[in-house]
């Protein structure tokens, strides 16, 4: 499996992801520039966190028009794997590769803290081998409040497209454990074909033994299986 990480102007988790894939997961990863029109033969494309184009208009709204996004869409349509984390998730919803939208946190404030999430399905590559328990993974966003229309929500539930929900440390999905007001505590979703993933929490920030938390690594390791 060869990974590619796209750098948009304003991405700031691109180097973290490259480090994580290479050093923590021991896999090959290349850096892709937003103006590239070639995915360099990558099997799995990551859209990293950050503030693409400053997010001055609406998170991810401009980055979706970057030249490389045409290739990302084609890759996804061919069944190739794509995953967006945080700002990457926002870009994928703007690009229409994932349903829903990420709106402003209910608190209206940026929030950076460890939260817990619990896998909701084993029907996707990302979650296939995860235990049904709370995973501790950090969030860092001001616009991570997942929202979608009722029909879409029903479809997401019916097709097992919800991959993670926010929960407490014991795995209970409660209003108190929802850090941003997301519908039904949704922290991450996949598309119908289950080859495109998006999540607000940052697994790459919890993948290094030296930082005292490996729950993010346990999630990402599924991609290597």
């Amino acid at each position: 499996m060869k990974f590619g990480v796209i750098t948009f102007p304003g991405s700031n988790c691109d180097q973290d992801l490259l480090y994580c894939i290479r050093e923590n997961l021991g896999m090959e990863a290349v850096s892709l520039w937003h103006k590239d029109t070639d995915l360099q033969g990558c099997d799995f494309i990551f859209l990293p966190g950050g503030f693409s184009y400053g997010d001055y208009l609406r998170s991810g709204a401009i980055a979706r028009f970057s030249p490389i996004m045409n290739e990302v869409v084609r890759h996804a349509e061919r069944g190739g794997y794509v995953m967006g984390i945080c700002n990457g998730f926002q870009i994928l919803t703007e690009a229409g590769l994932l349903p829903g939208a990420l709106i402003r946190n209910v608190s209206t404030r940026f929030m950076c803290t460890n939260v817990h999430i619990i896998p909701q399905t084993q029907s996707t590559r990302l979650t296939a081998n995860l235990e049904s328990r709370a995973y501790k993974v950090p969030i860092a966003h001001a616009e991570g409040n997942f929202y979608c229309a009722q029909d879409d929500l029903k479809a997401l539930n019916d097709n097992e497209q919800i991959i993670f929900r926010y929960c407490d440390e014991n795995g209970n999905i409660t209003p108190e454990s929802n850090p941003n007001g997301s519908l039904e505590n949704i922290a991450g979703v996949t598309n119908k074909n289950k080859n495109v993933f998006g999540m607000m929490p940052h697994p790459e920030r919890a993948a290094d033994n030296l930082l005292g938390n490996l729950d993010g690594k346990f999630i990402l390791e599924n991609l290597l299986a």
Binding site: D16, Y19, M111, C112, T113, N114, D208
Partner: peptide, 27 residues
């Protein structure tokens, strides 16, 4: 401080192990 990103860069050694000063590992 929760309004500040304290973890970007994946070097903050104090996120999961508090101490009197910030510790930043050097990759």
């Amino acid at each position: 401080y929760q309004q500040y990103d304290s973890m970007v860069g994946t070097d903050n050694n104090t996120t999961n192990a508090q101490s009197d000063a910030g510790v930043v590992r050097i990759k």
